[in-house]
Every structure is written in structure tokens, then in C-alpha cells.
């Protein structure tokens, strides 16, 4: 059933976009978007702390939120305390006592409605990514947040758009910690669920939480994918498609990028092999192949030649009969050439 104006399923978020900015003078930074709702976060630390904020047994974690316009005021304070509460369970602060970990989140989008939950969710995710990018702060899990809204008549929807927010009678963000330590499924660590009219029952919250949990898993998958190209030069995604290894030879082709690559699965060989042929590739580039979100970067068995505008990859599946989800990404070694092939 499709009841949403932007043709999304009710449990689908807008397109997730992750960029590692590499901002100067900070230790880690990242940009996260749900559609056009974008936030930029930067992290510094562990660094020297003001004497007043020093804690003898753990690091001090400060969050500052900067709005897109005007000076930070009451709303920014509310946002920063929400982000801090959501991200705190993932940090292992006692490894660096008497230090400061500072997170600065800059809103890059404007919300006209009262429901700021999508913005907060994107800020939490951006903060989480910046902490991952910094790499100097030990963490026990990854926090992913997603907003849920309740529309009268239509029910619960994930990641409500600006238009849907105007009609919502209840909503909020849910933050989950993804860590195997807590036992498989993602644990809900923070929520801002509330109702403007009509109230809500315990059942409503649980239903919204379960819906959010599934959507948060997608955010986690996107984060995991992004980490594999973190630190490599100018990443771009060639294609993201699920190739199913059926009984016979299957060809997976992406309409937009058809000239760049095509993939063939040879299940007849044992173990089955996937070979990717990159056509019209003039520049050399690093290729990362993700199978079930495990990165196989570099690819030792890469058969490529520098002179020919064609690259050929062949590798075997780990387990025959298993249908992995495959993502192929490339990062061009020369930044200036990248735009040409986008």
C-alpha cells in the first residue's frame, strides 16, 4: 500500500547520504542527510579540558548545536542535550579521564514545522559518524537514529517529510545502539516520542519503536558501507544492486551506469564466481566490493591492465548457495577526474 505523497513506503526513509568532510582543525567530521535534511558534525578529542569541566574518572562529553541561521539559543540547547543523551551510551568515556570530547553539530537545513525530529535524527547520525571518523574515541556501539511520525488516518510513517510533518498528531525520534554485546538486536537508547493531540498508548510507542528499529538497521548498513571507503580519496558509488546467484548465468546491469560496468555470476564453477567488467574506465581507480556488507577492498585477484580501458575482477563466493548482497564502489585515485564520471 502506498499512501505517501512522495511515493515512499511507510517504512522507508528518504535517501540517506553520508559524506566525510575532512574538515580542517578538527579530529573527525561527517555530513548526514535524510533527503534534503542535512546536518554536519565535527568532533575534537580527547583534548585538554577546562578545569571547571574536568572529571577525575571520565572524559567530559560536550555537544554544541549551531542552527542554520541566528545565534544558538534555547532550541539549540534542547537539541544538544538530546544529542548528548542519545550518543552517550555508545561512548567509553572512562578510557580517557580528565579530557574533553567536543561535538559540534551544524544544521544545514531549515524546518518550518514544530516537528524537529527528522533534523534531530540526522544530527544524531551525523554526530555518530563524526565520532567514527575521528577514530580517537573508544565506542561500544554505533548509534543510529530515525524519526517516526503518526498521521491521522494513515498511521505511522518513517522519516516524515516536511509536508507530512504539518499533519502529524504524534511523533518523535528513536535512537538505537547497534552492538553485538547487547544481544543481537538493536537496543533503543533514547526517544523523544510525544503527542500534540489525541495522546498515545503504550502500544503506539512500541509499534513506532519496532518500525523505527527496522529503518535504523538501514541507517546502520549505510554507515557500515561508508566506513569501508572512509579515508580513501573522493568516494563515489558505481552502483548498488542485489545480484542473486540463480541456477544459471545472470547478468546484473544498472541502467544509469551501463557503460561503466556489467556483472556476471558464474554459479556453475565451484565455488561460484562473480566477475565484474568495467568498461570505458580510463582512469585507474580503487574498487571495493562489499558482500553482505563485508568489504573486500583491493581485491587480490584483480586482473587489470593499466593500458586497456577495461578492468576485470573475478572472485569466488565464500559459501556456495548463499545469496549475498553485493555493493560495488570505486574511488578514483585522481580527485580532479572524479566529477567527469559521476
Amino acid at each position: 500500500m502506498n499512501t505517501r505523497r512522495d511515493k515512499r513506503q511507510r517504512d522507508a526513509s528518504r535517501e540517506i547520504e553520508i559524506t566525510y568532510e575532512g574538515l580542517a582543525r578538527v579530529d573527525g567530521s561527517a555530513r548526514f542527510s535524510y533527503g534534503d535534511m542535512t546536518s554536519l558534525a565535527s568532533v575534537s578529542g580527547p583534548m585538554e579540558v577546562r578545569l571547571a569541566a574536568e572529571q577525575a574518572s571520565q572524559a567530559t562529553f560536550e555537544v554544541f548545536v549551531r542552527p542554520i541561521s541566528n545565534v544558538p539559543a534555547t532550541e539549540s540547547k534542547a537539541f544538544s542535550s538530546a544529542i548528548r543523551a542519545a550518543l552517550l551510551p555508545s561512548l567509553i568515556l572512562n578510557r580517557h579521564p580528565r579530557t574533553l570530547i567536543q561535538l559540534v553539530v551544524q544544521a544545514l537545513s531549515f524546518t518550518r514545522t514544530q516537528w524537529k525530529d527528522v533534523l534531530i535524527a540526522s544530527m544524531i547520525n551525523a554526530g555518530s559518524l563524526a565520532l567514527l571518523n575521528a577514530g580517537s574515541i573508544p565506542m561500544r556501539g554505533v548509534i543510529c537514529a530515525v524519526a517516526v511520525g503518526r498521521l491521522p488516518g494513515a498511521g505511522l510513517v518513517i522519516d516524515p517529510s516536511e509536508e507530512e510533518c504539518a499533519y502529524m498528531d504524534a511523533g518523535g525520534s528513536f535512537a538505537f545502539i547497534f552492538a553485538e554485546e547487547v544481544g543481537g538486536s538493536a537496543e533503543n537508547v533514547w526517544t523523544s516520542w510525544r503527542s500534540k493531540s489525541g495522546g498515545f498508548t503504550e502500544k503506539d510507542v512500541f509499534e513506532a519503536r519496532e518500525l523505527a528499529r527496522v529503518a535504523a538497521q538501514n541507517v546502520y548498513n549505510a554507515i557500515k558501507t561508508s566506513v569501508s571507503w572512509m579515508g580513501s580519496a573522493e568516494p563515489f558509488e558505481l552502483t548498488s544492486t542485489a545480484i542473486r546467484a540463480h541456477g544459471e548465468k545472470t547478468g546484473g546491469e544498472d541502467e544509469d551506469k551501463m557503460e561503466i560496468w556489467c556483472a556476471h555470476v558464474f554459479p556453475m564453477t565451484s565455488p561460484p564466481e562473480l566477475s565484474l567488467v568495467f568498461l570505458d574506465v580510463v582512469e585507474e581507480f580503487n574498487v571495493t566490493v562489499l558482500m553482505d556488507n563485508l568489504a573486500f577492498s583491493g581485491i587480490e585477484s584483480l586482473e587489470s591492465s593499466d593500458s586497456l580501458p577495461c578492468q576485470f575482477i573475478r572472485f569466488g563466493f565464500a559459501t556456495p548457495g548463499h545469496h549475498p548482497r553485493i555493493t560495488i564502489m570505486g574511488s578514483r585515485r585522481d580527485k580532479s577526474e572524479a566529477a567527469q564520471y559521476r
Binding site: 565506542m139 554505533v142 553485538e180 557500515k224 566506513v227 569501508s228
Partner: peptide
């Protein structure tokens, strides 16, 4: 070599 995120078991 595999990509790993905080919280994953090794």
C-alpha cells in the same frame, strides 16, 4: 581484511 564497526564482536 574486513571492515569493522564499534560494538562488533571479534
Amino acid at each position: 581484511m574486513t571492515t569493522i564497526l564499534p560494538g562488533e564482536k571479534v
